[in-house]
Computed example of a mutant assay.
Amino acid sequence: MPAATRRVDVRGPRFGAAVTTVVLLVVLITGSGWLLAAQGVVFAVGAFAGLRRAPYGLLFAHLVRPRLGPPTAFEDEAPPRFAQAVGLVFALVGVIGYLSGVTALGMAATALALAAAFLNAAFAYCLGCEMYLLVARLRKPAV
């Protein structure tokens, strides 16, 4: 099935965003470019291999979802995958900042990614998903 038609339990990306929020908070507190690089790998797997293969998606599928009731809502996987790609860009910029000694750049990129992850985790508002939908609307030819 093509990635654009895959559907995911809406609770999965939100769980991933909660874990990401914690990881990015630890990055900001510790200034660890290497931890941010690890989070970048998580973003890359989610963006390119799919949410089901991403580490947080696997945690959700095997440890969290079996303890919850059956899913009541699904969403297209494409917008959250796009959001993972956006997170990867911020993680790469942050890693470059931290590892090159431009700590302010690392902190700024991490803080922006943290804000987006927190919005998704706490309020189910996915900024990257909204960006995906906006780009999709802009790409549609006018009738």
Rank of each mutant, 00 (worst) to 15 (best):
L138F: 15
P80E: 03
E77A: 09
G46T: 05
R11G: 13
G94S: 05
G46F: 02
R53G: 08
L112T: 01
L68I: 14
D76V: 13
A142M: 13
Y125N: 01
M1L: 10
V26K: 06
I29M: 11
R139T: 07
L24C: 07
M1H: 08
P2H: 04
T21R: 04
P79I: 05
A49K: 10
T103M: 00
R67S: 10
R6E: 14
A54P: 10
T21N: 05
G106S: 02
A18D: 05
A17Q: 09
D9R: 02
P13G: 12
G40M: 11
V19L: 07
A18W: 06
Q84R: 11
P141S: 09
Y98S: 02
A73K: 14
A113D: 12
L134H: 12
L24Y: 08
F15L: 07
R7M: 15
L25C: 15
W34D: 08
Y125P: 00
S100R: 04
G87E: 07
A47C: 10
A54C: 11
F43P: 08
V86I: 15
L63N: 10
G97W: 03
P2I: 03
G128S: 06
L58S: 05
W34Y: 15
P55V: 03
E75Q: 11
R11I: 11
V42W: 01
A3M: 14
L51C: 05
G12E: 07
D9H: 04
A116H: 04
I29T: 09
V22K: 04
Y98D: 01
P13S: 14
G46R: 00
L25V: 15
I29K: 02
T110I: 03
A37R: 03
L36A: 01
R11Q: 08
Q84W: 08
A121I: 00
V23H: 04
P80A: 01
W34T: 15
L127G: 11
G31Q: 02
L114K: 00
L59T: 04
L58E: 00
C126A: 03
T103V: 06
A49D: 14
G16V: 06
G40V: 12
A37P: 13
L88E: 03
A124N: 12
F48Y: 05
G46D: 00
A4C: 04
A113Q: 13
N120T: 12
A17H: 13
G128M: 00
S100T: 15
G101W: 07
A108Q: 06
A83R: 03
A111Q: 02
A124K: 09
A113L: 12
A104L: 13
L138Q: 15
A49E: 12
R81F: 07
L25F: 15
R7F: 13
A83N: 09
G16C: 11
A113K: 11
L59D: 04
G97M: 03
V27M: 05
L63K: 08
T103R: 02
A61Y: 10
I96N: 05
C129E: 00
L134Y: 12
